[in-house]
Simulated scan of single mutants.
Amino acid sequence: MTDAAAVRRGYAKGRAKREELIEAATRLFGEVGYHSASLREISARVGISHPGLLHHFPTKEALLEAVLEHRDEVDMATFEADLAAGGDYFASLVRLVRRNAERPGIVELYCILSAEATAPDHPAHAYFQRRYRTVLDRSQAELEQRAAEGRLRADVDPEHTARALVALMDGLQVQFLLERDAGGPVVDMAEALQTYVSLVLAP
């Protein structure tokens, strides 16, 4: 094996191990939250030493940042691909919610971390502030565009409706998590969101 091939192989192995750590951290953060999660537990789940984990992520905050970035990359790549293929913004949101229902670990992660991150000293506080602002602004802009085109009910306020839309998606995730182990029917998050969207958009 040439030196260059050895370097490429080492890089590929390192990248694969980094992805394993992100997946393990995603699961653990979703199970117990950021503060209760242990780097040693994450490294044990992946089968490497604690110093080995620190080689990839020197701090717990760096690992959290990687977890959140990975989640956004996966979600946004699919969401933007929907839009690029000519999909409607709100129809694409509904499809994203439907995909998330098939990944309950991701739903857990978001619910627990977003609640924890309301504390100003939480390392993800600024991240969630930016994320909420981005989603609110984009949803409001989409609603305003529809209003200008006559595709929004006249009595619908774009700013308030954008906030209600985000609050609905968050609330549906909480209901989904609480109901999935209760033995009864589980809320269909995508269908509930579609129903709300249908109420505010003009026929």
Rank of each mutant, 00 (worst) to 15 (best):
E159H: 15
A24K: 00
L93V: 09
I22T: 01
I48Y: 02
D121G: 12
P51S: 11
R133S: 11
L165F: 14
M169F: 04
G87E: 09
H122S: 09
L152H: 05
R163T: 12
E69K: 11
A24W: 00
N100C: 07
T161E: 13
E73M: 10
E41P: 02
P120D: 10
I22F: 01
L53P: 15
E159R: 15
E31G: 05
I106G: 01
L172R: 04
R130N: 06
Y89R: 06
G47R: 02
A84G: 08
R15T: 11
A164W: 11
A4W: 08
L109V: 08
V32P: 00
A124N: 03
R103W: 01
E20K: 04
P123N: 07
A101K: 03
A167Q: 14
M1T: 12
T161P: 02
E19M: 14
V7P: 05
E69D: 07
Q145V: 03
R45W: 02
A115S: 15
D137V: 02
V94I: 15
Y127F: 15
L63H: 08
R153S: 09
V74D: 10
G10E: 05
G10S: 15
L109F: 03
A25H: 03
C111R: 12
L109N: 07
L64Y: 00
A25F: 02
V94C: 07
E41I: 09
T195L: 14
R133L: 13
H55T: 15
L201R: 13
P58K: 13
A141Y: 05
A4V: 11
E73G: 04
V186R: 06
G30L: 09
T59C: 06
E191C: 08
Y196T: 04
R131C: 04
G33R: 09
L178H: 13
E20C: 07
R103Q: 12
A81Q: 13
R95P: 01
E149N: 15
D137L: 06
Y132A: 07
R131Y: 14
F57M: 08
A119E: 15
V156H: 12
D188F: 05
R146C: 14
A190E: 01
L63Q: 03
Q175N: 10
E41D: 13
A91L: 04
L64K: 00
I106K: 00
D155N: 12
Q140S: 11
A190Q: 00
Y89H: 13
F29I: 03
F79W: 00
V135D: 04
A117M: 06
P123Y: 02
E108K: 12
L21M: 13
R99K: 06
P51C: 13
E159Y: 09
G105N: 10
E41C: 04
V174F: 09
G86W: 13
R153D: 03
E61R: 12
L64N: 07
E65P: 02
A141G: 12
R95D: 05
Y34V: 02
S198Q: 05
V174A: 10
A12W: 02
A147G: 10
D121V: 13
R9T: 08
L165P: 00
A148G: 15
L64S: 01
R27E: 10
V186C: 07
L201F: 10
D170W: 05
L109Y: 04
H125N: 14
L178T: 09
H56Y: 11
P203L: 05
E61A: 10
F176T: 03
T78V: 08
Y196A: 06
L199T: 12
Q175M: 13
L172N: 07
V174C: 08
G10D: 06
A124H: 02
R180G: 01
V74Y: 00
D155P: 05
R103A: 07
